[in-house]
Amino acid sequence: MGAVELKFSGSFERSSYLKEFQCPYCDKFITDQDISKNNYRLWVSDYANEVTKSESSVYGLDFWLKSVEHLNCLPD
């Protein structure tokens, strides 16, 4: 089971969940500052992601978030 980088330049509702992830390179958790400055990269599962459609023809995408890492790790 692999992961692929999600090229994402927008925002989403529950960005606070990103703070539960620890960067695999610097071992620091993602912070509010990282989120506000878009200093992170999302890795999602390469399978079993789902597309949903509401009654009003609005489509949603569900991704299985595998990892979050810093774009630029901050020095100690």
Rank of each mutant, 00 (worst) to 15 (best):
S15Q: 12
F8M: 01
R41S: 07
G2H: 02
V68E: 14
Y59R: 06
F21I: 01
L6G: 05
A3Q: 06
V58Y: 01
W64R: 05
T31Y: 04
E5I: 14
L6T: 02
S57Y: 05
I30C: 08
E69S: 15
D32L: 00
E55S: 05
D76R: 11
S54F: 13
E20K: 15
N49H: 06
F8C: 05
S36M: 11
Y17G: 03
E50D: 14
G10Q: 08
L61D: 00
Q22I: 12
N38I: 01
F12E: 04
K28A: 04
S16H: 03
Y47F: 04
L18F: 15
S57K: 03
S67A: 07
S54I: 09
Y59C: 04
S57R: 06
V58G: 00
S54A: 09
F21W: 09
K19L: 05
S54W: 09
C73L: 10
E5P: 09
F12N: 11
L18C: 08
V58W: 00
V58D: 06
C26A: 07
E13G: 09
M1H: 07
E69A: 14
N38A: 15
Q33D: 11
P24E: 00
S67F: 10
G2Q: 07
P75C: 14
A3P: 05
D27S: 01
C23S: 05
F12I: 06
G60C: 02
P24F: 04
N39A: 09
V4T: 01
D27V: 00
K28G: 01
D34H: 12
S67H: 06
L65Y: 10
I35M: 12
M1E: 03
D62F: 02
S45C: 07
A3K: 11
T31L: 01
A48L: 04
Q22R: 13
K66R: 06
F8W: 03
G60Q: 04
S67P: 04
Q22E: 11
Q22T: 12
E50Q: 08
S11W: 07
F63I: 02
H70F: 14
T52W: 15
D76P: 15
D32Y: 03
V68P: 03
S45Y: 06
S36T: 09
E50M: 02
Y40L: 09
D32T: 07
S16V: 07
N38P: 00
L6P: 03
C23R: 02
M1Y: 09
V44K: 03
F63E: 07
D62Y: 06
Y59K: 08
Y25K: 15
S54H: 06
E50K: 10
D27Y: 01
E20M: 12
A48E: 12
N49L: 08
F63G: 04
E55L: 05
L61T: 05
S9Q: 11
M1G: 07
F21L: 01
